[in-house]
Simulated assay, not measured.
Amino acid sequence: MNQLTKVFVLGLPRTGTTSICSTLLSLNYHVAHTAYTQTTFEKANALADTPIFNDYKELFHYYPNSQFIYLTRESEKWVPSIKQLLLRMYNNVVRDDGGFNPIIKRCYGEIFSPFTLENINDDEFLIACYNKHKAAVTEFFEQQAYSVLFIDISKPDDYQKLLSFLDKESYQDEHTGSGFPVLNQGGKVTAWKDLKHPHKIDSTKNGRSSTLNHIS
């Protein structure tokens, strides 16, 4: 069992994971937005997106006393955004002769199962996936009697909730400004790639993923 504690962001894609990762950088965390190698988990003390949103149960047991943050987003904003992302990803998730790395395929395939074009284009299916994921996270941590922070980055008050949860109130005026940055709007998903920061942790090694022994 690993004794290092970390911050894990459990929100599904398109709930503001890039924005909160940028905020965590400003709070002096070493941050990985997606993590596909053992080295990434070792170097980062704050991680989000894939495979965090899918593998939180294993991570909870492997990294005891860590902090977990769940990102919420109103369905009328999340559905068109996630639909656009999943449609772009579809071929590389389902193909057998390459495409995305196995970790991405596994996580998206499990959360949005069955992963079909028909389902991706069905708003009710996507909302059901979101609700099922949120309910599963809520139930799991309630069973553990463990506190999770639920926030919506579009709500100004939730920024202060994050600082309080992480015991980072002293950073507010000096380092972080007054709220979450607004990133990856209009379907763009490159903000994290374009962001330069010394505490930003690579998700892969030389563009390649590797087996994650503790969550495989």
Results as ranks from 00 to 15, higher is better:
Lys132Glu: 10
Ser81Asp: 04
Thr37Cys: 04
Phe112Thr: 03
Val189Gly: 01
Lys193Ile: 02
Asn2Lys: 05
His61Met: 04
His214Gln: 06
Val7Asp: 06
Lys6Val: 11
Ser154Lys: 03
Lys43Tyr: 07
Phe165Thr: 08
Gln144Met: 12
Ser216Tyr: 07
Gly11Ser: 13
His175Thr: 02
Asn2Pro: 00
His133Ala: 05
Asn65His: 14
Pro80Phe: 06
Tyr146Ser: 06
Thr176Cys: 13
Phe141Asp: 05
Thr34Leu: 00
His33Val: 03
Leu149Thr: 05
Phe150Cys: 07
Ser19Phe: 07
Trp78Ala: 05
Ser210His: 01
Leu4Cys: 04
Pro80Ile: 05
Met89Leu: 14
Ile104Trp: 07
Ser113Thr: 09
Asp157Ala: 11
Gln144Val: 02
Ser113Glu: 11
Gly109Asn: 10
His197Pro: 07
Val93Trp: 12
Ile151Arg: 02
Asp157Ser: 12
Pro102Asn: 11
Ala46His: 12
Thr72Leu: 14
Asn28Glu: 15
Trp78Glu: 05
Phe8Tyr: 10
Gly187Thr: 08
Ala46Arg: 11
Cys107Thr: 12
Pro51Asn: 00
Asn131Ala: 07
Met89Ile: 04
Gln84Ala: 10
Val94Asp: 06
His175Lys: 12
Leu117Asp: 03
Ser113Gln: 10
Cys107Val: 08
Ala191Asp: 14
Tyr62Gln: 14
Val7Gln: 06
Arg95Ile: 13
Lys196Trp: 00
Phe141Asn: 05
Glu42Thr: 09
Glu74Thr: 12
Asp152Ile: 10
Phe141Ala: 08
Asn213Val: 03
Ala136Tyr: 04
Glu139Gly: 02
Val182Ile: 15
Phe100Ala: 14
Asp96Ile: 09
Ala145Leu: 11
Val182His: 06
Lys200Asp: 06
Arg14Ile: 00
Ile111His: 01
Gln3Glu: 14
Thr116Lys: 04
Ile111Ser: 01
Arg73Phe: 07
Cys107Gln: 05
Ala128Arg: 15
Arg106Phe: 13
His61Gln: 13
Phe165Ile: 08
Thr72Asp: 11
Asp122Asn: 15
Arg95Cys: 14
Asp152Trp: 10
Glu42Gly: 03
Leu87Ile: 12
Glu142His: 15
Gln185Ala: 07
Tyr70Glu: 14
Leu71Ser: 03
Leu71Ala: 05
Tyr146Ala: 05
Ile201Phe: 04
Trp78Val: 06
Ile151Gly: 02
Val137Ala: 10
Glu174Ala: 10
Gly187Ile: 09
Phe100Tyr: 15
Tyr56Gln: 07
Lys77His: 13
Ser216Gln: 13
Leu4Thr: 13
His33Trp: 05
Tyr70Phe: 15
Tyr63Asn: 03
Thr15Phe: 13
Ile69His: 14
Leu24Glu: 04
Pro102Thr: 07
Asn45His: 10
Leu86Asn: 06
Ile104His: 10
Ala191Pro: 00
Met89Val: 02
Val137Phe: 11
Ile120Thr: 08
Leu24Met: 11
Lys161Phe: 02
Ala44Lys: 04
Arg73Ala: 05
Asp202Gly: 04
Leu183Lys: 14
Thr5Asn: 14
